[in-house]
Design a protein around this nucleic acid. Structure first.
Lengths: 192, 192
DNA sequence: GTCTATAGCGCGATAGAC
DNA sequence: GTCTATCGCGCTATAGAC
């Protein structure tokens, strides 16, 4: 059996590069070197760079939210679900050399340089993640596990911002250990 | 009296562009159009782009931390100090069209594309901000205003991550109102 | 200190052979 | 599907006139 198809290899390389360098610093030349084909060949699979980024955002959205929904569907405590959710982010960070950020965090930073249909995808990802957090927090409030003050929506938004920000900050200062410390602090706060 | 000097105008324009677009998407051409001089003239003041970014980071670091230290030096409650600190971030956001992020948040996202001496400046800014937050939180714990669980350092790191992340997320989804909601939620959590 | 002009490079994208 | 070759553009940076 031979290797995975070229299209997937291109997407994998592009994702890795964006998570490290950002959308604007990622180039077809970089991808071509990582995959081992000429950069003109990439245009056969993705005619423009925007096509590539759109496909990448869609793939990541589907992949990530499938994992989240899998976590939520399990008959676990809300605390375990929230911890697993936080670990999803961390798994992305510690793969490779550990200098990666969340894909949507990087794209979000460069938001103003993106076409509107890409911006819409970023907005949708943030919204969908907050919706999932609302569900987890609601379960925790109902079961009595979580006793934080304030309303659930504001807490969900805060948690998502904390994790996205924690990722970017930890890369410059503190690394994976600091990200884990933030998650532990979050767990304490959410219990109230 | 005539206008502010060209060097300052260049720095102002560059900061605005980086907060909107990021370091890599900001160009000397953009600056030249904003300031009203030819792009070659910018090289007289800042020979290379890295020189410009370094000067910008230094100016922002000094300016921002002077404001923070001014807040801390006042004989106010810890809650008021923390609120004022959060407002410093928001002031940057709501100036102009409101589509700006924190300067160091943007630069932090593009960290892997920067020269090492610029990376060091980002690390220092994060560290200094966390140190100031530790002081505010310590005052609040000592006075009994703050009753959050966990240690102060972890809480300081979490707050800084929350604010940086909240900035980036709010730009894509929710805007200034959402940032304010995050701050309110933070105030509830920190009181414990 | 600001200008015109241009060098030199990397980028995204296309044409056409194989 | 992948290749070689090339186009046109925008970028950082420099040289030299004023």
């Amino acid at each position: 059996m031979n290797s995975i198809d070229t299209r997937t290899q291109i997407l994998d390389a592009a994702q890795d590069l964006i998570q490290r360098l950002g959308v604007n610093a990622m180039s077809y030349q970089d991808i071509s070197e990582a995959v081992g084909i000429r950069k003109a060949s990439i245009h056969y699979h993705f005619p423009t760079k925007d096509d590539l980024v759109a496909a990448l955002l869609d793939r990541y959205h589907d992949y990530f939210l499938r994992l989240v929904d899998g976590i939520i569907a399990q008959p676990d405590s809300a605390e375990i679900k929230l911890r697993r959710y936080c670990s999803l982010f961390e798994a992305t960070l510690s793969s490779g050399n550990g200098d990666k950020a969340c894909l949507y965090g990087m794209v979000g930073a460069e938001l103003a340089t993106l076409k509107h249909y890409l911006v819409d995808r970023v907005t949708a990802f943030y919204r969908d993640n907050e919706d999932r957090l609302v569900r987890i927090l609601t379960q925790g409030k109902d079961s009595g596990e979580f006793g934080f003050a304030g309303d659930i929506r504001a807490m969900a938004t805060s948690i998502f911002s904390l994790l996205e920000g924690g990722f970017l900050v930890a890369r410059a200062h503190g690394g994976a250990a600091q990200y884990r410390a933030i998650v532990e602090q979050l767990m304490r706060l959410v219990k109230g």
